[in-house]
Nucleic acid binder design. Structure first.
Length: 881
RNA sequence: GGGCGGUUAGCUCAGUUGGUAGAGCAUCUCGUUUACACCGAGAGGGUCGGGAGUUCGAGUCUCUCACCGCCCACCA
């Protein structure tokens, strides 16, 4: 029988995926088991393309989903994409701009049509890329945050929260992005450390020629000053409280007030108060009932509230001009260089201005209470556990969530205004009219609120809205909510996780997920954040193309140790590609040996020690790996499966199987074939969740598909094969040590590993003699031994201690005695050291008294062994000399 | 200012109730033997960031210092 052709991921991955899709392999298989498994995907931006973060995130989800599917649980992985309000609008605007069209030229309706057109055409890219990775989502349930169902859910949630007064409209100082001309939430503002200047400006007192000096980093805001504050305890300014000063250039008079906000140690101790353009000043203004003067237009230029010379200048231009004028007119006391943080918009990277506008807010403080309580009650658990601290810290200090955006792409806010400005919130205009009639006795509704909702508002509903809510009878909602686990990066704990908790609890009265698995960021191999500008981005699709999705998945999974960033290196991927090839070749080996020709697996009473040993090892590692996955220790799971397959199955068992299959004992041949058939099936099923493509392909190429009457993706783990006795598995451990030692000695004596030798053993306990005779085929083949004699034939040539037995090896003439003495001397020195340490320990009374018995015994055994080995070695050395 | 991580072999990282320091990659030597050179066999390489403490015993627990990274808040 011929071998497989060599492994090439390009031949199989796409083919296998379309097979899965065509045959609807990812649809949940209904069953009555109370336990189920469900995950909602963190919806990627519809504008997005797959980056390493996605690849990690989805490799982990797919591992969990496939593993639980193989466990036989009814399993749903709910996919979808996010409409990404700002990002998408910007993409489409950019395209139009190339054609010389602006968004405003088109008007709202036509513009939105363009966006939808774009979405239909390009919105599927990220989905296709997820498929390349092997993600086994139920694509028949694919959702979009702007689709009909989700939009309905959004409206319902908004109206409901409004009625409960958990959503309200308010005139407040808000973060304003002058480039996008929209409000954004606190979370979308990034504070950046910047070198800046601190300007000390003289304000003239109104009643004499003296000055009061204030320091500011944003001098242009002085046109909006409505007071100067000094600390009531500050002796320098006590006399001035209540007096008036004149703002330079605009020459408006304002009062000096007393407020604890002024810090005598900062700047000059006197601080200008601009309630309309600074969050702290806003509070000071409220406390002291100051006016607010807004000096900015929505685009960041100065408005009519500033002197004519400055009208319509951008705020940063105005700043430059103002400094020159202040300097000329001798209002500038000094300029200092300082380091401070400046707020930037995370999307536009433009400086954010606090601006007084009317916006919609969610009363997050109230919703957060239950979300905190449920995590404290451990109804939702974080992995690693530490992240719950971050969660609590933010939740306990949560601010009102600004949810309105002055954009066009998104869920338009379901609020209508009557002619006289009264607000009506309803799911649609008909409802709104009804309410208007009843409540305000008017049918005249002028217009709908033009704003749209923050994209995260709809994302917050994702775990229940995608499952069918508000239709509470939906099968999926009942079956799959709460979801089993949310897999996400820590960067969106606030944006998303916290908000899903709040909304899920409020509307479903149950947490949206049992567990939250928080994974790290993917960085480059030097630990740098991947970014286009640094040019260190590793594109997952390039890697998939070169090494295969399986290799990439295995790499990411194996590197996802909790609490550490994933530093991705191409070398690692290459290494795991080799691992996959190795697996492939083991099946080729089995095929050559006609393993898959059998009609069924006949395994009843396995007798051969090697066969017993591999089954025992398999069972052991199967359990370890299952536990690792259950504990979210995917790195450990990957390590164990790699270790088991490569170091036990390949390095030892396959080698054992060769002499067994080649023997003339038909029973042993039959048993070994069946063992291989059984173990390889288990290997595939265990590996499938990690490397689905190659395993499914092998499942097809071998006989398992017919044998088990199912695709691997839907194969259910079977009960472990229980060995009737496992005593002789220890024999194999002895043999492994024996052969390893033999090889090591040969290498040290510069004897070619392939050379066959004669082995005479002096002092081998009967028990061990038996083991060797029982496994003669294996020992001879793997040890490359011609003949061995266990009866103690005296020979001075090549005497060594091996597996703690005195042994002599005949190698022919080529043995180098001096070399051998050198090796043995080295070993003796190490032993001397260890013996000294053990003796010291055992002479220590408190060690004997206080250490547990087994530890003390262990130490005694160690000493005994070392002593006898020492004795053996010394004898050999003197006999060689 | 508040909080959270990290520091273990040349590199990337494991090390789960404290009990003889591990893996992969890289390096060196040897090698084609029923799969696999994307391979096999063997070897070298570590005072576990520094210091102190608890303990019979510390990579592991406590304190402290140093360096690196991240998050939140503030900044006149």
């Amino acid at each position: 029988m011929s071998a497989f052709k060599s492994y090439n991921h390009k031949d199989i991955e796409d083919k296998i995926y379309s097979y899965w899709e065509k045959n609807k392999c990812f649809k949940p298989k209904k069953n009555k088991n109370k336990k189920y498994f469900s995950i909602v995907i963190p919806p990627p931006n519809v504008t997005g393309s797959l980056h390493m973060g996605h690849a990690l995130n989805n490799s982990i989800q797919d591992l969990l989903v496939r593993h639980n599917r193989n466990k036989g649980l009814e399993t749903l992985w709910q996919p979808g994409t996010d409409h990404a309000g700002i990002a998408t609008q910007l993409v489409v605007e950019k395209q139009l701009f190339k054609k010389g069209i602006s968004r405003k030229d088109l008007g709202r309706e036509k513009f939105l049509k363009e966006v939808w057109k774009w979405k239909e055409k390009s919105g599927g890219i990220i989905t296709d890329q997820l498929k390349k990775l092997g993600s086994s989502c139920d694509w028949s349930r694919d959702r979009f945050t702007m689709d009909k169902g989700l939009s309905k859910a959004v409206l319902k949630v908004f109206v409901n929260l409004y009625e409960k007064k958990l959503i309200y409209k308010d005139l407040k100082l808000t973060n304003w992005d002058t480039k996008l001309q929209t409000a954004i939430s606190d979370l979308e503002v990034v504070q950046k450390n910047t070198k800046g200047k601190l300007y000390y400006i003289k304000y003239k007192l109104a009643y004499n020629d003296q000055n009061i000096i204030v320091a500011t980093t944003r001098p242009e805001t002085m046109f909006g000053d409505t007071a100067i504050a000094v600390n009531p305890k500050d002796e320098r300014y006590k006399e001035l409280i209540g007096k008036e000063v004149i703002i330079p250039i605009s020459n408006r008079k304002i009062k000096i007030i007393s407020d604890v906000y002024a810090d005598p140690d900062q700047g000059s101790g006197a601080v200008k108060i601009t309630p309309a353009h600074d969050f702290n000043d806003y509070l000071v203004g409220k406390r002291n009932k100051l006016n607010s003067i807004n000096i900015l237009n929505k685009d960041g230029t100065l408005n009519e509230n500033v002197p004519n010379d400055y009208l319509n200048l951008d705020r940063l231009e105005a700043r430059k001009k103002l400094i020159v004028e202040l300097e000329q007119k001798n209002y500038l006391d000094k300029i200092e260089d300082i380091n401070h943080t400046v707020p930037y918009g995370d999307r536009t990277n433009s400086i954010i201005e606090p601006l007084l506008t009317e916006q919609w807010f969610v009363d997050a403080k109230k919703l957060a209470k239950e979300a905190i309580r449920q995590v404290k009650k451990k109804n939702t658990n974080f992995f690693p556990d530490n992240w719950k601290k971050t969660y609590f810290q933010w939740m306990e200090n949560i601010e009102p969530w600004c949810i309105s955006r002055q954009l066009w792409w998104g869920h338009q806010i379901p609020a209508w205004y009557t002619e006289d400005g009264k607000i009506i919130v309803a799911e649609n205009i008909l409802e709104a009219k009804k309410i208007a009639k009843k409540k305000f006795k008017t049918a005249k509704i002028l217009k709908q609120d033009p704003d749209v909702l923050d994209t995260w508002f709809s994302s917050a509903l994702w775990p229940f809205a995608t499952l069918g809510w508000p239709n509470n009878k939906s099968y999926e909602l009942k079956r799959f909510y709460k979801t089993s686990v949310l897999v996400t990066g820590f960067d969106i704990i606030f944006f998303w996780v916290a908000r899903m908790m709040m909304m899920g609890l409020y509307f479903m009265k149950e947490v949206p997920f049992e567990d939250v698995y928080v994974h790290a960021l993917v960085r480059d191999e030097k630990g740098q954040k991947m970014s286009k500008s640094k040019g260190n981005v590793i594109d997952p699709l390039t890697i998939i193309n070169e090494f295969g999705a399986d290799a990439l998945r295995f790499t990411l999974i194996s590197m996802s140790s909790p609490g550490r960033d994933v530093k991705l290196s191409v070398d690692r991927v290459k290494g795991y590609r080799n691992f996959i090839t190795k697996i492939w070749n083991t099946f080729s080996y089995c095929k050559i040996n006609n393993i898959f020709k059998t009609k069924n697996i006949k395994l009843s009473n396995v007798k051969n020690p090697a066969n017993q040993w591999i089954i025992k090892t398999l069972n052991l590692y199967k359990q370890k790996i299952k536990n690792n996955i259950n504990d979210y220790r995917f790195d450990e799971a990957a390590r164990n499966i790699y270790l088991y397959i490569w170091n036990y199955f390949c390095d030892w068992y396959i080698e054992f199987s060769k002499p067994l299959l080649n023997s003339n004992n038909k029973k042993i041949i039959e048993e070994t074939k069946n063992t291989l058939l059984y173990v390889q099936r288990e290997n595939l099923s265990l590996l499938h969740a990690f490397i689905p493509f190659v395993t499914e392909e092998l499942w097809n190429l071998t006989n398992y598909k017919k044998l088990e009457k199912t695709d691997l993706v839907n194969f259910n783990f079977k009960k472990d094969f229980a060995l009737k006795n496992t005593k002789s598995t220890k024999d194999i451990d002895f043999i492994i040590n024996f052969i390893t030692d033999l090889r090591s000695i040969k290498a040290k004596l510069n004897i070619s590993p392939g050379n066959f030798v004669d082995v005479n053993i002096d002092e081998l306990p009967k028990q061990n003699q038996k083991i060797i005779y029982n496994n003669e085929l294996i020992v001879k083949k793997l040890g490359r031994i011609n003949n061995f004699d266990l009866r103690g034939v005296k020979s001075k040539i090549g005497k060594v201690v091996l597996s703690n037995n005195k042994i002599s090896i005949s190698f022919g003439d080529e043995i180098d005695l001096d070399q051998q003495i050198l090796i043995l001397d080295k070993k003796v020195k190490i032993l001397e050291n260890e013996i000294r340490n053990s003796e010291k320990k055992l002479k220590n009374d408190s060690f004997i008294k206080k250490a547990p018995e087994n530890v003390v015994n262990q130490e005694k055994d160690l000493l005994e062994n070392n002593k006898s080995e020492y004795k053996n070695l010394s004898e050999i050395i003197s006999s060689l000399k």
